[in-house]
Amino acid sequence: MLAQSNRKFTYDEYLAIAEKQRAELIDGEIYLLSSPTFEHQRIISRLNVLFENLLEDNECVPVISPFDVILEDKNEKNIVQPDLLVICEREKINERGFAGVPALIVEVLSHSTASRDYVVKMNLYMRFGVKEYWIINPQSRTVEIFNIDENGYYGIPKTYSKDDIVKSQIFDFIQFPINKLFDFKR
């Protein structure tokens, strides 16, 4: 996160920084993004292939980072770059990214982003009504799936680990063995 003196960054300030470095703007704070690890990229690559195949005959489409998701309300713009997202409203794709609420967002944890993924981003995604939020942990080789309830909150996640079949709650056709994401041989 960029140090600041109790002020919020503007969207224009974000754009100036994002020209030089991958970044996110969440609730007026700018978070600089570092390059992901090899393992992180392998997981996202595998998941993207699975989603592409499973969503083949659907109007929804998976997109991998870097790709801006613009979550905007009357007070401010938030710009995030989830590791993977599923877009079902293609008409909201523009030259800057996707200006809307994805149906599903996936984040892969790293040491530097874990607290942001579990707190800052989870609260943002919940506030904007992202129906399903997946957190993939390469260390524990688990997938946690949070679903928004009728009150607009994420409840206790469904956690998948070795030998489980990962299942989306909002897309009944998205299900696959977790070993498709991880190398359990090591």
Rank of each mutant, 00 (worst) to 15 (best):
P138M: 02
I43A: 00
T159W: 04
R46K: 12
V86Q: 07
R96E: 14
S5A: 11
L33M: 15
K131A: 09
V130L: 03
I178C: 08
F67H: 09
Y154K: 05
L47D: 01
F9Q: 00
S35P: 12
E132T: 05
P138W: 00
V119M: 12
K131G: 06
K180H: 11
L32F: 04
F182A: 07
Y153A: 09
V120G: 00
D12C: 01
K158N: 15
S35G: 10
V80L: 04
E76D: 13
I79P: 00
P138E: 01
E89R: 15
Y160T: 02
S168T: 03
Y11A: 00
F146Y: 15
F176D: 10
E39G: 05
D12E: 15
V120P: 02
N6R: 08
N151F: 10
L124P: 09
S161N: 12
I178Q: 08
N53E: 13
S168N: 07
I17N: 03
K131F: 06
E132K: 01
L181C: 04
A103P: 08
K131H: 07
L2E: 06
D117E: 02
S35D: 04
V166T: 05
S140N: 11
K131L: 10
I87V: 12
P102G: 04
I170Y: 08
N6Y: 09
P36G: 12
R7V: 11
Q81R: 07
E29N: 14
K185R: 14
F9D: 01
D172Q: 13
G97N: 07
K77A: 11
E76V: 09
L15S: 09
E95C: 11
P177K: 11
A23Y: 01
E24G: 00
Q81W: 02
L109K: 10
G100H: 06
A103L: 14
L25V: 00
G152V: 04
E13H: 01
A114Q: 11
H40Y: 02
E144N: 08
I26V: 11
S168R: 03
F67C: 09
N78P: 02
E132V: 00
V108M: 03
T142G: 06
I156L: 14
